[in-house]
Computed example of a mutant assay.
Amino acid sequence: MIDIGLTKLAVIGVVALVVIGPEKLPTVARMAGSLFGRAQRYINEVKSEVSREIEIEELRKMQKDVQEAASGFESSVTQTIADTRDSLHSAWDDTPSATYVRTGTTEQLAIKAKNFRKKKLAKNSAVPGWYKNQSGRRVRVISGAARVSKYRPASTPKNSGSFYA
């Protein structure tokens, strides 16, 4: 890089004073300063743009790595699920009940369902309703407050505000 010291700047200033003249030197110096500022701003913009591009490239690389990791994880999970499904299917196929269900006809399944309904009906209605009512089985459920008001002794006034009265 160019090494400019104080003596070199003084020499450049004296030469500029002689060449340009004392009347135009302030305007030329102002214009040189503004051009120097523009150059610095342009260089800073270029630096920031390059750094942004580098960051974007790093982010793209990170995104690619994450996508590769996610796809690897997804494939491993899919493979594990497939292996588990295969082992469950093989275990299911080895059971004798599975062969019965597969070989059973629709008539056998209908008979089985009919027998189930008969058993359920017999279980629920084997005892007549009048006997259930006489044996003390509750048919209607009432709340605690309704039960208290229904079975309150007659000597206690019903409109009494106190529980202990």
Rank of each mutant, 00 (worst) to 15 (best):
T27S: 08
S90H: 05
E74F: 15
Y100L: 10
A122H: 02
T27K: 02
T78P: 00
A122S: 04
R30Y: 02
T103N: 11
R137K: 13
Y164G: 04
K132M: 04
S149M: 07
E57K: 08
S48K: 10
S135Q: 02
P26T: 06
V66Q: 14
F163S: 05
K123F: 02
G33P: 02
K64Y: 07
S71C: 02
S48L: 14
G5I: 08
A165Y: 08
S97Y: 11
R30K: 10
A113T: 04
A16E: 11
S51R: 14
I43N: 10
S160Y: 05
L59N: 03
V66P: 03
Y164N: 05
G161C: 06
I142C: 05
E23P: 01
N159L: 06
G13K: 06
Y164V: 11
A16G: 13
V28M: 13
G13Q: 11
I2S: 06
R85A: 03
R85C: 06
K132N: 04
A32G: 04
A82D: 14
R138D: 11
G37P: 07
N133D: 09
R52D: 08
R117W: 15
Y131N: 09
Q67P: 01
E58V: 12
H89I: 03
V15N: 02
M1N: 11
A146D: 15
T84C: 14
T99G: 10
T80D: 03
D65Q: 15
I4C: 09
A110L: 00
A29M: 12
S160Q: 12
S87N: 03
K123R: 05
T156N: 00
T84W: 13
V19F: 08
L109A: 12
Q63H: 13
R117G: 15
T27A: 10
S75Q: 08
